[in-house]
């Protein structure tokens, strides 16, 4: 692959392939740790655009044996909502 530095994977946090690769190498981290260190998939959309790409990249660094388990946990809210909405205020 050429020009990894320019290849943004996570659009929200502008995390590049090169950043993911070097972080994975430096810290030999799990998928979850790589996400926390780089913030890939943790931006405004909550990983709804890049999650599958991230899974594939992380799997290329550290192949995961147990494919039945979703690599990164899904957590609510799965759509952006205001604190008012979560708090039960609906006006």
């Amino acid at each position: 692959m050429i020009e990894n530095k320019q290849l943004i994977i996570c659009r929200c946090e502008e995390v590049t392939y090169e950043q993911l690769q070097s972080t994975a190498r430096q810290h030999t981290c799990s998928a979850r740790e790589l996400k926390l260190r780089t913030r890939a998939g943790m931006g405004f959309c909550g990983g709804r655009t890049c999650r599958i790409a991230l899974d594939a990249i992380m799997d290329s660094f550290i192949p995961d044996e147990n494919k039945a388990v979703i690599p990164l946990k899904y957590q609510p809210p799965i759509r952006p909502v205001s604190f008012g909405t979560v708090g039960g205020r609906h006006d």
Partner: peptide
């Protein structure tokens, strides 16, 4: 379904 993303330099 959702679409499988294929990141390409400049895709933002």
């Amino acid at each position: 379904a959702a679409e499988y993303p294929i990141p390409v330099p400049g895709w933002t």
